[in-house]
Design a protein around this nucleic acid. Structure first.
Lengths: 136, 136
DNA sequence: ATCCTAAGATAGACGAATTCTAAGTCAAGA
DNA sequence: TCTTGACTTAGAATTCGTCTATCTTAGGAT
């Protein structure tokens, strides 16, 4: 959105109609679209946008740290614009719906030094699974 | 291995040369092979084994609960024979090496009811990331 | 020991998601 | 306005996995 576009421009990101539309599609809470969904929504506004551009733009936004890549199933990756506040994901085992959740405490603290095998552990990613109210 | 093959036979699993070889390839600690790697190793012993059979067999072993499917990156799924004791995974951000780890406490406990959105949360899967000693 | 047959194996076609390539287009600084 | 390197495009190619039609075989029945 405006915020995001401002920040990107400030970083010297060259602004184009395609990039603007992709960034605008990825706005809101609990948004977890696949690349194809992003492409479909972007194409509503900019019919000639190509898939390759959507992939390129998503990849750049991930590299810039402005969005997150989420792979909750073996299917297509999803893109999460909520990269500013750390959070985890709750996924419905039946329909695949994803919600952002905030567990208490730091998941990293649960991994004792003896279980780190000399790794410099930097992050922990938690996926909770269960049935959502609609699928129960 | 023997243990696994015994158990499978006891469950009425029809034994074939192909299935035996796949089960034998998936033996040991910290083993996390892709389907293609399983196929390559199986083919060393049984050159005519087909990819489809490896996929079929892996799928059956997952259904039987004898191995686990692990997706730590957006790439190929990996198969983990350590399905008996619950554990999580520690992945090297550089080379992709995977280790089985055992965090303290139950990760489910860290998710408050208010953060469950009415879901019947059943499991939590944690992926720790960092640099391994070799890549540091 | 041999036969039968459903379960398993095979090669290769197919499909989804993603990446690559070569050529055309354009944002933004000079 | 001009220039140029960065961006976009269509479509081919790649990767990972599934499906299909046909052939083979494990293991119970005879």
């Amino acid at each position: 959105m405006s915020d995001l576009l401002e920040r990107l421009r400030g970083r010297g990101w060259r602004m184009t109609a395609q990039r603007r539309v992709v960034a605008e599609v990825l706005d809101g809470d609990h948004v977890h679209l696949t690349a194809d969904e992003v492409h479909a929504r972007a194409a509503q506004r900019l019919p000639e946008i190509s898939r390759a551009t959507v992939y390129n733009t998503l990849g750049e936004l991930v590299t810039l740290g402005e969005i997150l890549e989420v792979a909750t199933d073996g299917r297509a990756k999803r893109y999460d614009p909520n990269a500013h506040r750390p959070h985890q994901h709750l996924v419905c085992s039946a329909c695949g719906t994803i919600r952002d959740v905030h567990p208490t405490g730091d998941p990293l603290a649960a991994l004792p030094a003896a279980e780190r095998f000399g790794f410099a552990v930097a992050s922990a990613e938690v996926t909770y699974r269960g049935l959502c109210p609609d699928c129960a």
